[in-house]
């Protein structure tokens, strides 16, 4: 059984991560418990962040909001400020697993896992969020669009931990939607997911798409859809998404099926965002 460390501040946490053998950050901790039960985790040291102050705040910034890494996912779904500033994020976080997991799992831990099927990254990609990282050597910020490096691999370096995610406010007049398609039970993991954000700025209209579960990492693409109507926007979105789709086959579907489903998710997300815009 690994040793549990409960640092009382960020510096102590960073020191522990730098100095301990085989340390692992314990955020929400649900996944680590699963690994322990499977008998697969041989981490020597767990660094629990639950007693580190200052990691659970949701604060307004000049450009949007800053969310502490230990903020439970469920707060993203229920917090009025989040819903007001970044409604796409609020909607997407509400799709993760079930309320109990969302009460426990943390915003930082969620992206640190880097799973390609996670819901939140799709919205964070579309919203151009930044990930704030800290280590004994200091702090740095990584755009979420550069954060997911490869299958299960993120930009988090050894000794680093995620302290916050900064999400720029969703632009005025924008419209958005998140679509999650599962192929087994209705509440299963997504087999394909897409977050669509339609933004009109300086006379140009842009569709920003985050797609999940369809490639080794969550993918992002931005399409200029100025002057497009709904149908041509849908076609443009699918054309832009198609080359990014590189599915991993599993019990939930083959490559061919997931590829097909991915384009449906993109189309559905665009149509819903379009409708969202018309409703406003």
């Amino acid at each position: 059984m690994p040793v549990l460390h409960q640092p009382r501040d960020l510096d102590e946490a960073c020191t522990l991560l730098a100095e301990l053998d085989d340390p692992m950050v314990y955020g929400g901790g649900t996944a680590i418990q699963i690994l322990l039960k499977q008998g697969l985790l041989f981490a020597e040291n767990l660094v629990d962040l639950s007693f580190v102050p200052g990691l659970t705040a949701i604060e307004a910034t000049a450009t949007g909001i800053r969310v502490g890494a230990m903020t439970p996912l469920r707060r993203m779904e229920t917090d009025a400020q989040v819903a007001g500033v970044v409604p796409l994020a609020a909607a997407t976080y509400g799709h993760v697993a079930n309320p109990r997991v969302r009460n426990t799992a943390s915003v930082g831990g969620n992206i640190a896992h880097g799973d390609y099927r996670l819901d939140p990254p799709t919205a964070l990609l579309a919203l151009d969020a930044q990930v704030e990282l800290r280590s004994a050597h200091g702090q740095r910020r990584v755009p979420v669009r550069d954060f997911f490096v490869d299958f299960q691999l993120t930009a988090v370096e050894h000794g680093e931990l995620i302290t916050a995610i900064e999400i720029p406010a969703q632009p005025a007049g924008s419209a958005s939607s998140y679509v999650k398609l599962s192929s087994l039970g209705e509440n299963d993991w997504p087999s394909a997911s897409a977050a669509a954000l339609l933004v009109t700025e300086a006379g140009r209209r842009t569709l920003r798409l985050g797609i999940g579960a369809l490639a080794p990492i969550p993918q992002f693409v931005s399409v200029d859809v100025s002057g497009h109507d709904l149908e041509t926007t849908v076609e443009a979105a699918k054309a832009a998404a198609d080359p990014l789709i590189d599915p991993i086959p599993d019990v939930r579907g083959s490559v061919t099926y997931k590829r097909r489903l991915g384009l449906v998710a993109v189309e559905d997300a665009v149509r819903r965002a379009w409708k969202d815009q018309d409703d406003d």
Partner: peptide, 14 residues
């Protein structure tokens, strides 16, 4: 698929 993360059972949604 021998865990309830992968083995699907009907939920209220089904």
């Amino acid at each position: 698929n021998g865990t309830l993360l992968d083995y699907q059972l009907p939920s209220v949604r089904d």
